[in-house]
Nucleic acid binder design. Structure first.
Lengths: 345, 345
DNA sequence: AATGGTGATTTGATCGTTCAAATCCAGAGA
DNA sequence: TCTCTGGATTTGAACGATCAAATCACCATT
């Protein structure tokens, strides 16, 4: 179908370097992979020729010989892609930036809708990748089981709630984040903290909710916790926030609303504006994910430590075995903006 | 440093299939690559064995022999990543989904901040990719020149404004989109259409602005076009929209505001809410990019045809040569929501 | 002077596939 | 019966690297 073109000029090979330096190919290989085996004058000479010729080892040849691609598959999800500030995009970027430090690469791929394994099978079959980074593991998910059964290394971004022992993961501690947020709100002078979350069933949401409750209990405010639940959609969130704010009155700077996501917080913000109220001054407001919208709206929010998470994920992938002790639960950081601190406006 | 583990069980090779089917390896190769050369009983038998053994050709071996990776580099930009609904994320997803159809893959990478070429050199040097998809080509950009000089195939998502002849690109016709939006607004009964855009210097912005002006002229409304310019930040946009709305009065459903981005439109929306006005009923409002925020706020917006753009990009990459006739300028589609059509609310 | 040891380097084989050329074989034509 | 032809299939070489084993050079022992 497509003609392979040979436009690119031939690159220097290990043999070219060897001839130029007057040594054998294996010596050049040793210079790169086992420099301690090479006498130092030779080492210097070979390195100079490598530099001069701009030699870089051919990845395909290395893969073939080593049975190791030093590449990992990263699944992109067409439906999730349209979600607001989908956090996975940021994680992909951080993984990519960190990749050279683990001399690895990422290969993106997508599975067919009807069978979530197809993409994994295809990519693995070609030997193009050594393993996978998986995300969006909230639902009942056949992927961890399949990967384990096929002895494929992988790391999950997000706990595997229904089967934590099945593999290793990196996740962000939503519960701790929520506790942090409640403490912050109380410290800023808000006296009552309501919660706006997702309809139950999402382990992620339940975890965040628990953080809110725990922090309330810690402060001795757990008598009649006020909460509302809705879908992660703006209009629904606005409606739910409206109802919740009614029950939260008086809205005179003594009450705050803690939201399970920036989307929910955005709904709350709209609800506030509709009443002529201002986030921060009249009602404290905190979101989750620190999306660009949160920054734009000066919304206090919990930021996920994606940089750290990416490095952790790489470390897990490069560590053989499957003991789950390497899994990491990282703490988000609270980015304080005017929606929860009136003075700072 | 990192130990290569050999956990994965050995996969079937072309020789395994050949032995099982009682033919030579080359015949199996022909079944896959030149089926017309193989007698049909043999063909059937070999195909059956391929199926039975679950054989997939080893990509590294093919690459090595063919001097062709069938993979392309896609640069991710850590700074752009935080921008609201950065459209490039969506393009990456569409490219990935379309990739198997062109039996290719995408490899993500990042360049170092100080030298935008480093990432390209490294990836190309290993032979891991045959070419690149580049994005964010607005500024003076050394990449197209470098790619051409090194005879590396590439396609740009976004016109290369300062050097259109240097290579091939896929882009979305912002100008045509804006014309479409103006016509829509006039058809909906708005009589005056102002423009909120970016400070000049951005060819992308200037192009969109021209569309607005052209459509006004076409409708005979070009006497005293009203416009405001600002940075693509929410607070600045809100401020600028405020000033513009003052000059646009009366705001009684006869005026509309066309924005160069959803971020600017979001600013305008805040400004409207601050005055107790509603988008659509009191002032028509249109944004650009159809981000998730636009959807959430029921904002009419221009959606980029990312699916089509992705397929076009792949076709360009797989077409040898460098004649720029393949470049494509695609039309965005106007997604009409209540911010520009009060009845539909 | 012959032996042994050790560090440095080289040689041969191999990874899994495709290309180019050679071989095989059945049927047509003389 | 022999040669020729052309389709089907096989064989040898190569892609560019690494692994494992062999060789080499040099020096210390005995």
């Amino acid at each position: 179908m497509t003609q392979g073109r040979d436009l690119a000029r031939p690159r220097a090979t290990i043999v070219d370097v060897a001839q130029a330096a007057g040594v054998s190919r294996q010596t050049v290989s040793n210079v790169l992979n086992n420099p301690e085996r090479v006498a130092s004058p030779t080492l210097a000479r070979v390195r100079q020729e490598i530099e001069r010729l701009g030699f870089t080892p051919n990845a395909a040849a290395q893969q073939l010989r080593r049975h190791l691609a030093r590449a990992y598959g990263f699944e992109v999800n067409p439906s999730a892609a349209r979600r607001m500030g989908h956090i996975v995009d940021g994680f992909l970027v951080e993984l990519t930036v960190a990749a050279p430090g683990y001399n690895s690469h990422l290969v993106t791929f997508a599975s067919e809708a009807e069978n979530p394994i197809t993409g994994y099978e295809r990519l693995l079959g070609t030997g193009l990748v050594d393993g996978f980074v998986i995300t969006d593991t909230l639902r009942e998910d056949p992927r961890p089981r399949w990967l384990v059964d096929n002895e494929v290394p992988f790391v999950s971004f997000g706990r595997m709630w229904d089967s934590p022992e099945l593999g290793r993961w990196v996740d962000v501690d939503g519960r701790a984040g929520m506790e942090m947020a409640v403490r912050h709100l109380l410290a800023m002078g808000y006296e009552r903290v309501a919660y706006l979350g997702w309809e139950s069933g999402s382990p992620l949401g339940d975890d965040r909710r628990r953080g809110w409750l725990a922090a309330l209990a810690e402060a001795g405010l757990a008598e009649e916790p006020l909460a509302g639940y809705t879908r992660d959609e703006l209009m629904d969130a606005t409606r739910a926030a409206n109802g919740l704010l009614d029950r939260l009155a008086p809205l005179d700077g003594t009450a705050a609303l803690l939201c399970a996501s920036d989307m929910l917080a955005l709904g709350a913000m709209r609800s506030l504006r509709g009443r002529g109220l201002e986030a921060g001054r009249d009602v404290g407001l905190v979101g989750f994910d620190d999306s660009t919208v949160a920054e734009a709206l000066r919304l206090t929010s919990l930021r996920q430590p994606l940089h750290e998470a990416a490095h952790h994920a790489w470390r897990i992938l490069h560590q053989a075995g499957s003991d789950s002790s390497l899994s990491a639960l990282l703490s988000p950081s609270l980015i304080i903006r005017s929606s929860s601190s009136f003075e700072a406006a």
